[in-house]
Nucleic acid binder design. Structure first.
Lengths: 166, 166
DNA sequence: TCACAATCATTAGTGTACTAATTATTAGCT
DNA sequence: AGCTAATAATTAGTACACTAATGATTGTGA
């Protein structure tokens, strides 16, 4: 049970030089994916107590945002908007239906598709949701400029990811 | 079943002006949390096929990164480094143990704590892992400068989240 | 038209990720 | 020393999120 560190290796192949500075490619703190995962979990954690009064989880909140923009829409359409698999949405939508925020029924035009539609209760929930973004911004203590710039940069990453899918 | 749009409301309280431009606070595409979630899922998805030959999921890969930096270390220590609950790590570590990459045994100094230690196999895996960051960078088609800058900005968000926890 | 491929949603199975409750051990106080 | 609080890990329960397989419907080409 002896202490072992990567730095014990004199010729560690994970060390590269960037601008004359040695960078460890396998160091946790240098991983963009780690920063992304922690930031996403952290921000979703900020939403948790704020969404709690509405009875929504964060993914459910995103579905409601999508439906407030257009309703009814199909599961596949929601999946395209939210970048989620239908298999993920299926049980999630059932929970929102159980909450009374939406209805699920087969499309008349195409019996394969399922139309997801807001109920009056679901539409009314939007009024309460108006207070959420300000609460989050306030809680984070960041400016709208910082947040907007971050969102744009994340958009570039999302584009980079999608460019490689075919 | 009538089409309904938020924009039907003439006096929509979710529309604010920033730099004279009208911004919808509840529009999906304006949410930083949505961009974060999609980017994180997307980037983790990029890792999936790259990690597959090593038999690791992305969270498992992060655990290995942490152990390559220091081993042995306790579950709690790993949780602090990875920002994960012990309840999340517990089953994850059992899977890595089943894979033969680490051992789990009670600390002799403190019988409450569990020492997680790399096996020779787990230590050897690091050689294969050296190829992962270059593959990811190549697949994303982004420069190291862009990625480094993004990582730093994500660090600011993580700090903002943690500032509010007590 | 009619076999067959494509599409849509669901289910099954696995793996995070959280909170709350539980068990075991240690530390601290009097 | 002994009671109590605190700490470490696990378990239980819920909810995503993915891939693969399934069932139902629709579209298409010979």
């Amino acid at each position: 049970m002896q202490e072992q560190r990567a730095s014990d290796d004199r010729t560690d192949a994970s060390i590269v030089e960037i601008d004359g500075e040695p960078i460890d490619l396998l160091a946790l703190e240098n991983q963009v994916c780690f920063a992304l995962a922690v930031a996403a979990r952290g921000v979703i954690g900020v939403y948790r107590p704020i969404l709690e009064p509405l009875g929504l989880t964060h993914p459910q909140y995103l579905v409601m945002l999508a439906l407030w923009q257009r309703s009814p829409r199909t599961v596949r359409d929601l999946g395209a908007a939210l970048q989620l698999e239908p298999a993920t949405l299926s049980p999630l939508l059932k929970r929102l239906e159980a909450q009374g925020y939406l209805t699920r029924q087969r499309s008349t035009k195409d019996e394969r598709a399922l139309d997801v539609e807001l109920t009056p209760s679901g539409r009314a929930l939007r009024e309460q949701a108006l207070g959420i973004p300000p609460q989050v911004v306030d809680r984070l203590g960041m400016t709208l400029e910082e947040l907007g710039s971050l969102r744009d940069r994340l958009g570039e990453v999302i584009d980079a990811v999608q460019r490689g899918e075919r």
